[in-house]
């Protein structure tokens, strides 16, 4: 436990709150980097996922690609792109965007797919146009699973951003690698603890968001009439 004491001492050391290596700055970098990556990935994955989910076309391809991408080790992709584009922040951005796409894509299209077909059929039968079906039915009902996809993508990006410090001077991972180089275990451990806390905090935030975006009426709130329909509750997991 002595090791943890020194790690906490490192985290609390005022010397680590000034200059280019300041902890708040590193945390900010880590978050901004992750956020930008997620925005890029979402801009690609969400429209594509909605298209797949609404039309049902290209699903097989999406499943295969997502599964295949999961098998690709992040470090390999990261180092390969870094060799191509050179050391710097471009490689992590490219590699992590690629990695964040599959979970968001899956969240988007499974969100649409999990909706009771009869609900969509009925919406069409009463005269909703395809665009209205997407906007008024599929979007709100598919939101919980999309947020679920964003949640796993975020966790993955936060974790991999740590690894990104291997090829770029970026974020909290820097402490791990510079500590490794100088054999300063307090720094490594302190940095690791910070990353873990950051990841857990985001996990908690997402858990809260996910609870709020489940459309009312789908969540099966207790205390009211008995729940008789089971078909449409799939979206609530």
């Amino acid at each position: 436990m002595n090791l943890f004491a020194s790690a906490i001492a490192w985290i609390l050391d005022p010397a680590n709150y000034v200059g280019l290596n300041a902890i708040p700055l590193r945390i900010g970098q880590h978050l901004v980097f992750s956020l930008v990556t997620l925005v890029f990935a979402s801009a690609i994955a969400i429209p594509l996922g909605y298209l797949i989910g609404h039309t049902g076309r290209g699903r097989g391809l999406a499943v295969t690609t997502s599964g295949g991408l999961r098998a690709i080790p992040t470090l390999g992709l990261l180092t390969l792109v870094a060799l191509w584009v050179g050391i710097g922040v471009v490689a992590p951005y490219v590699a992590l965007t690629v990695l964040a796409i599959p979970p968001i894509l899956a969240g988007a299209y499974t969100g649409f797919e999990a909706i009771d077909r009869r609900t969509i059929d009925a919406a069409r039968a009463v005269g909703m146009s395809e665009l209205q079906i997407v906007r008024k039915v599929e979007l709100p009902l598919g939101l919980p699973l999309l947020i679920g996809g964003l949640r796993s993508a975020t966790l993955q990006v936060i974790a991999t951003a740590t690894l990104a410090a291997y090829v770029a001077d970026l974020g909290l991972g820097r402490y791990l690698f510079s500590g490794l180089k100088t054999r300063d275990y307090a720094e490594m451990l302190g940095g690791s603890i910070l990353v873990i806390l950051l990841a857990l905090a985001l996990e908690g935030i997402f858990a809260l968001i996910q609870r709020f975006v489940v459309p009312r009426g789908v969540s099966g709130r207790p205390g009211t009439a008995p729940k008789l329909r089971t078909g449409s509750s799939a979206a609530a997991r």
């Binding site: 059929d121 009925a122 919406a123 009463v126 005269g127 039915v137 459309p215 789908v218």
Partner: peptide, 20 residues
């Protein structure tokens, strides 16, 4: 779409929108 808006449709399992 216009045609359907002018015709009532009732299906098994009601087909109601669960979030409304």
């Amino acid at each position: 779409v216009k045609l359907r808006r002018g015709i009532g449709y009732v299906m098994q399992n009601s087909g109601l929108l669960p979030h409304r």
